[in-house]
Design a binder for these strands. Structure first.
Lengths: 243, 243
DNA sequence: CAGTGGTCTAGACCACATC
DNA sequence: ATGTGGTCTAGACCACTGA
C-alpha cells in the first residue's frame, strides 16, 4: 500500500478522520460496536497496525471505548460510562454534588437573551427551552441551575424535560436528538446574589455567590446547551485538577 | 525476549516506570536528552517498538518532549515549553492574564497556618517563605496572590524570591530545587473581600471576590507550593475547558 | 552524511468474551 | 472454537536535524 500518496497527512490520521466522520453521521450509534480492526484494515486496504493507531487516538479522546475480547464501542453517556465527568462542584467535606437530589422548579418556552445568544452563537430572541432546577445537599438548597436549549437543535425539548424526573440532560440530548456532548467550557465568576437567587437558596440578597456559566458542545463542535449554576461556597466549591 | 515472565504488567509499562524513576532521580535533568530508542532498546534487551510505546506514554503525560531528527528531552519550564499551561484566569475581554505585569509586595519568612498545613500535608507552624504579589491589568490592580513554599523542600526560598523580578515561580523551583511541577489542583470559591484585599484591589470591603486556592505537585507527587489568588470578576474570570 | 523520531507493514502469541 | 483487542517483534522507508 505504498503508492506514494501525495496526500500530506499520515494514513492513520486520514483513517481516524474518516472514522470520526462515520460515527458523526450515525453509521454506528452510541453504544454500538464498530467493525473489528481486521475488518477495517481490509476495508481501507491497510495493515491492522495502522487502523489500530487511528482507533487508539479516538479512544484516548473518549469518542470510543475498547474492550478486549468484545470490541470497540461508540461512547455513550448511559451504559457503563462515567456520567459525571463534567461535574466540578464538590461538597467542601468531600464527595461530588450528585444529580439525584435535584428538583425541577419550572420548564418553559423562552427566548435567548444577549448572554445566551452570545454563548450559543444564535440570534438574540431565538426561541428555545429554559429550565430551572434546584440542587440540594441533605435538605439544604445549595445550587440553582438555569438551562437553555435552542429550538434549532432541540425542538420541543420542554415536553421531554417536563416528563422526565431530574436526570442527566446529556443523556436526553443523546437519546432524543442524537447529540453527544464531548466538550464543555465553563467560566466562573463571583458576584452578589440577586433577590431571586437569595430566595431559592435561603440566603440574604447581596451575599457573595459563585456563578458557573457553561456552554456544552456536541461531537461536531456545535454549541448545544447553555447553563448557569449559582451557589454559595460555604458548602460547595469548584474544583479543577490539571496536569 | 519471550522468557515467559511471571511479572504481570506489560513490558512497556515496566520500562516506562523505570524510565520515570531514572528521570526522577536526576539521571537526565530537565532540558537534557534521553538516549535514543535504539540505545534504550539494546539496554533493556527489547525491541524498539516496545521502548517507543513506553516513551510515547511519557510524552503524552508531558514528562518528556520528542522532536523528530533531534531526540527525546526531559520537559523543562524554560526552553520552548508553554509557560502558562496552568493559568486559568482570563480577562473578560479575551486574553490570559499575563505574568509580566506583576509587582512583589512583600517576601518574608512565615509559618504555615492551618489551611496551608492542610494543603501541603505539613505540620501547622512549619516554617517557610511567604510572598505577596499584585497583578495588574493595564494600570488597574486585579489579582492579589499569596504564595507559600515550605522550608523542607525549598530552604532559603525568600532569598531567591527577593532577588528575582516577578517571574515564573515554577521555573525557579525547577532550576534551584530540581522540583518539576507537573500537576496542580485548584479550588474556587466566592466570598466577601477582606479589608486588606479591598485596600490592595481598590475596592470596597465586602464586595464579592473570587478566591482560587492552588496546591502544586512535583513530578514525584509531593505537594510543593500553596497559593491563593483573589480578585474581582468584573475584569477577569476563571475559565476551564473539559473534554 | 549518520542519527533521530514518525510511519507502516506483517507476522506472532496472549488473555479474554461469546457461543 | 472463534474472534476480539493487547502486547511484542523485526524490519522497512520517510523527513528532519546537525555536523
Amino acid at each position: 500500500m505504498n503508492e506514494t500518496r501525495p496526500s500530506s497527512k499520515p494514513l492513520y490520521q486520514q483513517v481516524k478522520q474518516h472514522l470520526v466522520y462515520r460515527v458523526l453521521k450515525g453509521e454506528w450509534k452510541p453504544g454500538q460496536c464498530l467493525p473489528s480492526e481486521m475488518r477495517l484494515a481490509e476495508e481501507y486496504h491497510l495493515s491492522q497496525g495502522t487502523v489500530r493507531k487511528a482507533i487508539e487516538e479516538m479512544a484516548s479522546e473518549g469518542l470510543v471505548t475498547r474492550q478486549a475480547g468484545k470490541g470497540t464501542f461508540v461512547t455513550s453517556h448511559n451504559g457503563d460510562y462515567q456520567p459525571f465527568r463534567f461535574h466540578r462542584l464538590y461538597r467542601n467535606a468531600g464527595g461530588k454534588v450528585a444529580g439525584n437530589e435535584a428538583t425541577y422548579l419550572e420548564t418553559r418556552q423562552a427566548e435567548a437573551d444577549e448572554r445566551i445568544a452570545h454563548g450559543l452563537h444564535i440570534a438574540p430572541g431565538s426561541t428555545g427551552t429554559e429550565s430551572l432546577r434546584l440542587r440540594h445537599l441533605d435538605t439544604q438548597p445549595v445550587l440553582l441551575e438555569r438551562i437553555f436549549l435552542s429550538d434549532d437543535l432541540c425542538p420541543e425539548a420542554w415536553r421531554i424535560l417536563q416528563q422526565h424526573s431530574p436526570g442527566s440532560i446529556y443523556l436526553i440530548l443523546e437519546q432524543e436528538y442524537n447529540l453527544l456532548i464531548t466538550k464543555v467550557v465553563e467560566q466562573v465568576r463571583a458576584r452578589a446574589a440577586t433577590a431571586e437567587e437569595a430566595r431559592f437558596l435561603s440566603i440574604e440578597p447581596g451575599v457573595a455567590v459563585l456563578e458557573v456559566e457553561r456552554v456544552a458542545y456536541s461531537l461536531g463542535g456545535e454549541p448545544v446547551e447553555w447553563r448557569t449554576m449559582v451557589g454559595m461556597t460555604d458548602t460547595i466549591h469548584y474544583r479543577n485538577e490539571m496536569g
